[in-house]
Design a protein around this nucleic acid. Structure first.
Length: 296
DNA sequence: AAGCAGGGCAACCGCGAGAAT
DNA sequence: TATTCTCGCGGTTGCCCTGCT
């Protein structure tokens, strides 16, 4: 059984807000407050709107001290740094940017900042690029390096070192929420898993269960099937044997396929660049166990 | 001038979490 | 303890504007 709708959709107005509606809502909230109940607010305020719509309109547009447009470089830094460390938790990022809304930041990231970041990186071929693990510790291009250095650090309270080290724990805290791990025996059949979190949770078990497989680890966004957010972003050798029984296999597979740019790819760009400027913290290609452990 | 494509942004949708009952 | 309700969040959609042909 589905969830009951929050309002009678047939009797509420949808679409863009008129100045009159804005004025009604603003006036009501300024005088009465929200009363802690957005569902009943529109009726009290004389609006034929869904409570959720009112809330969104107030939070993203009408409430005092909202700023729109013209993100500063400093704000870019903050957004990129936080995105690299916590992912797409826009509300948290917004909390660090006075007067900005999560929606604004999300839109800004999706439409401008992400592209800006990608454009600044040395653009790899979009498909079947051999990269990353094949040269994980090589210096970034100067443009990439400069871009990232211009982005980090953003805040004395969150230093570059804090952001990047101990990198594995922090990055995997983030990735544990956002990414999935899949094991594929065949690189030609890469697919996204609908059970990403479970895969993360049971990762260690799977290592043992699948210890006989020559697997690769696939990382991608776990949240949606959107082409912009869940594209296969990175395939990297999964060192599936902690006891180094398959070193030959590993050597033969030490390469990465980047299928497309998605959210995770951007994070990787940010972080791989960060690591380049801090002595390659992602993993040490000479330590196979690091290839795996860094994703925990 | 008209049609088209792409970008930007406001708004909507559905879900999870926590509070209330 | 179970169920219902509400809020808040992130992802997605669709409209409008602008630039190009």
């Amino acid at each position: 059984m589905g969830r009951a709708p929050c309002c009678d959709k047939a009797n509420v107005k949808r679409g863009p807000w008129s100045p009159e509606e804005d004025a009604k809502l603003k006036d009501y909230i300024e005088k009465q407050g929200t009363g802690g109940n957005w569902i009943s607010l529109p009726h009290k305020a004389g609006l034929r709107r869904c409570g959720k719509s009112c809330r969104l309109r107030w939070l993203n547009y009408l409430r005092p001290n909202i700023r729109h447009g013209d993100f500063t470089e400093e704000e870019d830094k903050i957004i990129c740094s936080l995105f690299a460390s916590i992912g797409s938790r826009w509300s948290v990022i917004a909390a660090h940017l006075h007067g900005r809304t999560d929606n604004d930041i999300k839109n800004y990231w999706n439409t401008k900042l992400k592209k800006k970041l990608i454009a600044t990186m040395a653009p790899p071929p979009p498909h079947h690029l051999q990269a990353f693990a094949s040269s994980p510790s090589s210096p970034s291009s100067s443009s990439q390096y400069n871009m990232i250095n211009s982005l980090l650090p953003y805040d004395p309270s969150i230093s570059t070192n804090q952001l990047l080290t101990p990198h594995q724990g922090m990055m995997m805290t983030m990735m544990g929420q956002q990414q999935q791990l899949l094991y594929q025996e065949d690189m030609g059949s890469l697919v996204n898993s609908p059970n990403s979190n479970k895969v993360i949770m049971s990762h260690q078990e799977d290592i043992h269960k699948q210890s006989t497989n020559k697997g690769i680890m696939l990382l991608s966004d776990a949240r949606s099937g959107s082409s912009t957010t869940s594209t296969v972003t990175r395939v990297k050798l999964e060192h599936n044997d902690h006891h180094h029984h398959h070193e030959e296999d590993e050597r033969s597979m030490s390469s990465v396929v980047i299928e497309d740019y998605g959210m995770e790819e951007i994070k990787q760009l940010i972080n791989s660049s960060c690591t380049s400027s801090s002595n390659s913290l992602w993993f040490d290609e000479n330590k196979p166990e690091d290839k795996f452990m860094s994703y925990y």
